[in-house]
Design a protein around this nucleic acid. Structure first.
Lengths: 344, 344
DNA sequence: TTGTAAGCGTTATCAA
DNA sequence: TTGATAACGCTTACAA
């Protein structure tokens, strides 16, 4: 039942011209007589003609596809990056193909290979690990790519990330300024460089006060984060503030505190990571470290586009700053408190 | 600097066979001598060969691409559907291309046309309106497609959605059972059939008690939902319960109530829509109407796959049931209260 | 300015 | 069982 879509020949025939002329009119590459051009356009319109991208790609070798590979399509941070990239590309005649590596290096490699078969113009990878073993595969394909969010060691391509040390530091500073001395850092997975850097940012600020933070590794997803946090709170004396280093750990902390009916910020102050609507839609809106998602998307596309257009300058490593959204989940400790729990 | 990727000829040469044989080995379409086959596979491996999908597509006309068009890539419901579809496709050699119509019929049409140019094997559309004017475009392309979530009037293709009336009904029933008589329905946009159906489901249940709900149209996004809710609460006597009909209206309600320091569920009970981790990570976890996202994704793919494989049965209209997750945000009204605010 | 024809990398047909 | 060859729809030299 499936009829074939109109081809360039159909259009040519209908307009009484050659296929080449149709191509020139529609592609706008060569000048064509105005009247003819109008006839061609009219024919194309009436046939609902749209050039077959596969054929076009095959001929030109230029794909107008951007492949985007993320660790998890159910994590709003990753989808927001995809969305930001899509917004940037929208009007430039590019299409996005997406896939999720599901946090597994093996599927990361297989999905990457599969997407590479489309000979995309460019590739965006948010690796699921710092090792990024699929890297050799993409490099051998000699396709422009940018690595985002999680940055491979010694990257040989453009990278876009946030300044993770600074992200940790602004959170820690805010807590210190509010008199907190007993701080728990809730890190997701310390195997990830970006998480370690956030930790280091926190540590550096605390060290200036002669302090050190407690730290817990919560795991990547909400459920285990919540469970591990709960256990930790059972086994340790509670901190006066918790600094969560990812969106899911933020949720884990909230769940664990809620379960124990620990009041935020009266008993424990909390800084969340990322900035979503649900963080604001609360009786106690969350103070949060916000990643500039839109700019991340724009920066990714800017680099990729430059490479696609032939830029051969050395790899650029773009770091964007996070900002602290101060809201109600962080409270000042009274001076006495801050001294009593204070430095060594 | 970009070297060409290995082609089937390179592999053939290296293995000392013809391109056709390579194709047969790798495609597994025709039987090939085992020893030869191994030589071919070895050659392919060592060259990192991956068949060019564009060329393959051009020849076969079979795309192994599924195009997915959603209204908004920043709405977790839509991205969760994309994710569910991706999970279903993952191992079947298909790729997903995604785009967002950004809630605009015009971009919906233009994005749809652009994606159609890839001659995808199938199309999934979550229309941004019930009119779905792009429909004629996709129908003229004669490509199998399924419409999901928002269902066009008189659909001529397979559709997958939830039973929206039932979704509204189970929420309303829960509130009625808990003694609520004065219920506010927070609808996003009444122009959407699925939202109207949810309202009707609520209305039908209330009508059985001789009741009618108040209703407010909050708009599609969180910010305006919150603002309109706030205004409504200022101008009206508060209900004892609010039933939110989308995820963003749920957020809007939460924000408005938080702003007014109205306690949930002590002053007002709340049922949210969709089920996300943040709804559970609260001092008062939200009772919520949960859409079966995973099954929605699976149903979409099942229909699409059948159509791609030639199923010509009449359009199927699949409706999946939502479930009520009863948590702490809905409370029983004491009998006296329920009588005093009770039926006519 | 327009048309003709070659060729992109596959796969399908058909002959060996 | 394997190989030669044509064709998919497009773009682009080059010829008219």
């Amino acid at each position: 039942m499936t009829t074939k879509p109109a081809s360039i020949r159909d259009v040519a025939e209908r307009a009484g011209v050659s296929p080449a002329t149709v191509s020139n009119v529609l592609g706008g590459r060569k000048p064509v007589n105005a009247a003819l051009a109008e006839r061609v356009r009219e024919a194309a319109r009436s046939l609902g003609y749209e050039a077959d991208r596969a054929a076009s790609l095959l001929r030109t070798g230029k794909a107008r596809i951007i492949a985007v590979l993320v660790p998890d399509l159910d994590n709003p941070f990753f989808t927001s990056v995809v969305s930001a990239i899509e917004t940037s590309l929208r009007d430039q005649g590019y299409e996005i193909i997406v896939a999720s590596s599901n946090g597994s290096e093996a599927t990361e490699l297989s999905r990457l290979s599969a997407m590479l078969a489309w000979r995309p113009a460019g590739f965006v990878v948010l690796p699921c690990s710092d090792d990024f073993p699929a890297r050799s595969r993409i490099e051998q394909a000699k396709i422009p790519y940018v690595i985002a969010d999680r940055i491979t060691r010694a990257p040989t391509a453009d990278t876009v990330s946030v300044d993770n040390e600074d992200a940790g530091a602004i959170g820690a500073r805010h807590l210190i300024e509010n008199g907190h001395r007993n701080i728990l850092v809730a890190a997701s997975v310390l195997d990830l460089g970006n998480i370690r850097e956030r930790c280091e940012g926190v540590a550096a600020v605390l060290a200036q006060q002669g302090l050190a933070a407690s730290r817990i590794e919560t795991g990547g997803d909400f459920e285990t984060a919540s469970a591990r946090l709960s256990r930790w709170l059972d086994d340790n004396t509670p901190p006066t503030a918790i600094l969560a280093l990812t969106n899911f750990t933020t949720l884990g902390v909230l769940a664990a505190l809620a379960e124990r009916q620990i009041a935020i910020p009266q008993s424990i102050s909390l800084i969340g990571f990322d900035d979503y609507a649900w963080m604001r839609a609360r009786a106690t809106p969350l103070t949060a470290i916000s990643q500039p998602v839109q700019e991340i998307g724009e920066a990714i596309w800017a680099r990729l586009k430059a490479r696609i257009e032939g830029d051969t300058s050395p790899p650029a490593h773009i770091q964007l700053k996070c900002t602290l959204k101060v809201r109600a989940s962080t409270a000042s400790l009274s001076p006495t408190d801050s001294f009593s729990t204070g430095a060594v």
